[in-house]
Amino acid sequence: MCGIAGILYKSDAEDGELGKALIDMLDGCQHRGPDSTGFAVYGRAVAGRLGLRFFVGAAPEATIARIRQALADHGASVVDEETVGDNYRVVVAFDGDVQAFAYAMERAAKLVSIGSSLDIIKDVGGAHDVDDRYGVGEVRGSHGLGHVRLATESDVKPEAAHPFWATGFADVAIVHNGQITNYWKMRRQLEQRDFEFRTDNDSELIAVYLADKLAAGRPLSDVLETSIDDLDGTFSFLVSTDDEIGYAKDRLAAKPMVLYETDEMVAIASEEVSLNRLFPGRALDTTEPAPGTFGTWSRST
């Protein structure tokens, strides 16, 4: 019930106008999902630092106080903080176990994302609405994902917007178009291993499923290949880690996806109209990934 987009600038030497590119791509396919819009953007990581973003609502003081207390309780010291729109964004110095820390922060408030380079910005409204509120257009970065959502199975709330962070894992995000039909079966398997879920959304499941396998040291391409067998239903999804993006597509080819690659960048979207927003007036040599395939791209070193 949505449209997805992703972009990666290949050269590690320079960051691109990431926020602006994602806004353009999502505005191009906003008809696929007018209710909410979200961005997962990756910037430069600093060793020993983690960025966290929370929904704190319109009267945030009490919530922020609770978050500060929880951070202190877990040995995270605040380096930088700001309140933007309905969000509280904080950078902390932290070097402990991220999963336990993340679950504790989840309990303190509505956590949007956690990562050394990942930052997720999402809210109700269109791409330009979210940009107006959070200044997404100014964000420069190496790679990122975006999502427009048509809310059907749950309410129009900022926390139900995408992208989804892989709850408990730093720097993994996902955007997904489709429906996973063995959702509960897979979720129960992960819950038996003490993973926690914050929503009933199948995109969160895919994110946690992938991040779990990545954390075991498997390469992203390998994990995506396995996902095509393990996930049942219709899906076209994009996943990002701190230095890669990848896609996977179901065997029924039920959901659209178009890809455009140059020496400098790769961009993937639900519809070509989004890719053309990056290159107005040009006919692009695009490809449509085949059913049951996957692909990955990483920052060159």
Binding site: M1, H31, L150, G178, T234, A254, K255
Partner: peptide, 12 residues
Amino acid sequence: ILGADDLVIKVE
């Protein structure tokens, strides 16, 4: 029409 997102384009 494989989802609400395709359907909206069909209606249009």
